[in-house]
Write a protein that binds this DNA or RNA. Structure first.
Lengths: 161, 161
DNA sequence: CTTAAATTGGCATTTATTATCAAATTTTGT
DNA sequence: ACAAAATTTGATAATAAATGCCAATTTAAG
């Protein structure tokens, strides 16, 4: 990692727009930020090349897909050795139901994971047959999402200078 | 809400691909799923119209933008009245730093929120001047993300039939 | 204030998206 | 199991967008 990438007001505007709506065409984007199509596209390409734009994804409606349960699970490990963590993480990555997994600081838990399943039966199945069977897992505490108040992953670009 | 939307194997393939890479052109997508361009595009349009495809977003690199701190905060409320929750949620939605906020079931916390800021100074500032000043907030517990092991929001489509 | 470097906007070209429709496939009813 | 009806496909053509090029403008440097 070398020098910081310098962004001007146009770049930030581009990121702001694309972060909210990744489906914008280059022409629409250009109009929104106040540039013509060619320099706008050039900038987007550069932002992709230097990795500031990481990837584009499509968000789906969980309810309409019958995925009615979102759970947040706190997981504690019995021994804090690199090997234990490595095994745990490798195993977790193989589960499609796990849409997030963070190693965190803090009191009781070592990991917070977010799991999506269609119903409680599937949840129980997943917990008993997958999570609790990973060696090293010593505590598991489930919470369930009742309402998603905010769920944009949109970063606060006001801090970017 | 009426009948369940019926998806066939092509639809699920489309969702699977777009969920991983929302930047695919229609032609690339068509090739991947094994259809020609026109029916592929028609299917995508239908999936957008009926809301199964919710939106497209662009993910940015936090590190490269200087947003080095991701915090997960558990928040408890003093009174569990609809009004208190309403006020809290309305206030939270105004903070750019809050990229997620869930109302959850469970023991100590009522909300789990995810916050992104550049550094600890900004974090402290945010916590003291924004979170703790919202009326009704009675407990606040912070964890910090040390490693993002998994962070695709990709839903488990294996359950979709 | 002059010169050099970088960035823009318009245009031409290539490529992709989108509408149309006949052919093929699947579904339905008997 | 078969024929008719309804969908869905793939090819083509027309429209629109992305991309490369370059002269003109803007910005930065001396």
């Amino acid at each position: 990692m070398t020098s910081k990438i310098q962004l001007d007001a146009f770049d930030v505007k581009i990121l702001q727009e694309l972060q909210i709506d990744g489906g914008l065409s280059n022409q629409e984007l250009a109009e929104k930020i106040g540039l013509s199509a060619s320099p706008c596209l050039r900038r987007v390409k550069i932002l992709e090349e230097n990795g500031i734009i990481e990837k584009r994804v499509t968000l789906l409606d969980r309810k309409k897909l019958g995925l009615d349960i979102t759970a947040i699970i706190q997981i504690g490990m019995d021994r804090h050795t690199p090997k234990k963590f490595e095994v745990f993480e490798a195993q977790l990555k193989t589960y499609e139901e796990v849409i997030e997994c963070y190693l965190i600081t803090g009191q009781d838990a070592d990991y917070t994971i977010k799991v999506v399943v269609p119903d409680m039966e599937a949840y129980q199945e997943f917990l008993l047959n997958h999570i609790t069977t990973i060696p090293g897992v010593s505590s598991v505490t489930s919470s369930f999402v009742m309402r998603r108040v905010v769920d944009t992953g949109a970063l606060p670009l006001k801090y970017v200078k």
